[in-house]
């Protein structure tokens, strides 16, 4: 895959796989590849806090963007008690950028996912830790090929969901309306990958596109 321009005109080196910050991110990338869902790794930085001079004090760069689903995905493998800061940033992001669709995958979500796929060993590796990629995982990620992905036709809208009982712990049943959801267009070309980004605070224009919030929604700090 050749280099391609970003929104700001800079180039991304697609020939190198990203250096994922966490093992869970590398695993999710493999899962998305497996199911032929295109993804970008940390392609956008969203400022969420400015000082009085308009200087960005805090930003948020979701781990993945799935262009065909128009969905950002943020993974955290931290213990539930340690995700408060991330939840706060997510709330700010949603306040400032209400049109952004973002899904936060907690550690427990990811462990359940790994259990489903029979990757029990990886569960132990990620449990309650910052989830840094091991040497083997980084090497595996680096060796992944850049195989193109087959396209497919667009899904139909298939009508409203029916009411379904909601099961809670203890098998309580209650009626709840099903939800009708929009179907995104399917992937049509190849998996896109972007060069590594370590952290929002270190992001440069080479690899990330900074998004501005709607006018009048900025939060000023430091007055």
């Amino acid at each position: 895959m050749s280099d391609g321009p970003l929104d700001d005109g800079s180039l991304v080196d697609y020939s190198r796989p990203p250096s994922f910050a966490h093992a869970s991110e590398a695993e999710l990338a493999r899962i998305l590849d497996f199911y032929e869902v295109r993804w970008d790794y940390e392609p956008h930085v969203f400022p969420i806090l400015w000082n009085i001079d308009g200087v960005v004090l805090e930003s948020f760069a979701p781990d993945f963007y799935l262009p065909d689903l128009d969905l950002y995905v943020e993974l955290t493998t931290l213990k539930q008690s340690l995700v408060r800061k991330k939840n706060r940033k997510l709330r700010r992001l949603r306040e400032l950028y209400p049109d952004i669709r973002i899904k936060l995958f907690y550690g427990r979500d990811f462990r359940q996912l790994m259990l489903k796929y029979g990757k029990v060993a990886l569960i132990d590796e990620l449990s309650g830790t910052p989830g840094q990629a091991t040497g083997a995982l980084r090497e595996e990620a680096a060796l992944r090929d850049e195989a193109p992905v087959q396209g497919a036709s667009t899904l139909d809208d298939t009508g409203a969901a029916r009411a379904a009982p909601v099961v809670t712990r203890g098998a309580e049943l209650s009626a709840a309306a099903g939800e009708r959801l929009d179907v995104p267009p399917p992937p049509r070309d190849t998996v896109r990958r972007r060069a590594a980004i370590a952290h929002p605070s270190t992001l440069g224009s080479r690899t990330a596109t900074r998004r501005e919030p709607p006018a009048g929604r900025r939060t000023i700090k430091g007055r």
Partner: peptide, 13 residues
């Protein structure tokens, strides 16, 4: 992750 319309749902768990 992928929001898809589901027409008939037995149970939401």
């Amino acid at each position: 992750l992928v929001e898809i319309p589901v027409d008939y749902i037995g149970f939401t768990i």
